[in-house]
Design a protein around this nucleic acid. Structure first.
Lengths: 141, 141
DNA sequence: CTAGAACCTGACGTTGACGTGAGGTGCAAA
DNA sequence: TTTGCACCTCACGTCAACGTCAGGTTCTAG
């Protein structure tokens, strides 16, 4: 595939793909003339990279982690393993933060929608999953 | 409280607090001599700001949202309400991403720990196991 | 053959959330 | 009084993940 196709299908910019290559997150061989050629699998890989970024991993960490996630295994050093465990802890923290913030937003939104129910509980919220996903707006970052 | 105390108790830098003031996220009155004085409540407010940032909200959004979250109500425009709903959707997306990434990490970590199948008794890591959140993620897309 | 997409390599610009001095002030203790 | 730390206000530096412009090349449709 050409870079433009990959970009479109993965929903990122061409510049982003060149940046990923610069950062050694994504490789491409070159056709005669110097243009990048990607395998089909590149699309999925880019989506994975996006998810990792969206999860707040630093690019250096992504660089370390990607090979493992690719192969589905770690032969790596215990040092890297520790890094992964630490990253997992950070991600847990971020999830907790996000859930907390989402709950606050839900409160505010709920009150704004039903100003009369000032003190009433929103009982459409069973203990586990707070709130309903009312709307899915799609926006990159 | 003085700025140094707030900073320490909230776990942020003094510079960060001055930055928040610059961004109108946090106010302080001044003692004679020009030094900032904060109420005790400032610590919690700073922690909230941190959570909002950690949740990936843009600073402009934080600025808009903070008064609502503060007062626990929205008298604001339907435009702001829509913003909040959109933000909620983004947060949901981020949560989904994080859960997905966390699962990938768990796979890798699991394999690295038990290269030959599953008796998971080795839990003697430094720092211990982070988080009580062990629920499996439902795939979002 | 020619126009014009699509691509290439630099290289500088952008934005957010602070970091990091520089140079001066306030205040409590010794 | 003097030390000395915490604090003050500029104001420039940083870093990541790209955006954007410049100036040139290559591929494809007509």
């Amino acid at each position: 595939m050409r870079i433009g196709e990959v970009a479109e299908q993965a929903g990122v910019s061409v510049r982003a793909l060149r940046y990923y290559e610069e950062q050694h997150l994504l490789v491409a061989d070159r056709a005669a003339g110097g243009r990048r050629r990607y395998p089909e699998s590149a699309v999925e890989r880019v989506r994975l990279i996006q998810r990792l970024y969206a999860a707040g991993l630093a690019s250096a960490t992504v660089r370390e982690v990607l090979p493992c996630v690719d192969s589905g295994e770690t032969e790596a050093s215990p040092a890297l393993l520790e890094r992964l465990v630490d990253e997992r802890a950070l991600i847990d923290q971020r999830i907790t933060d996000l859930l907390s913030v989402r709950d606050r937003l839900d409160e505010v939104i709920g009150v704004a929608r039903n100003p009369d129910l000032g003190c009433a509980h929103d009982d459409t919220r069973p203990g586990g999953r707070p709130g309903t996903i009312w709307k899915r707006s799609h926006e990159g970052r």
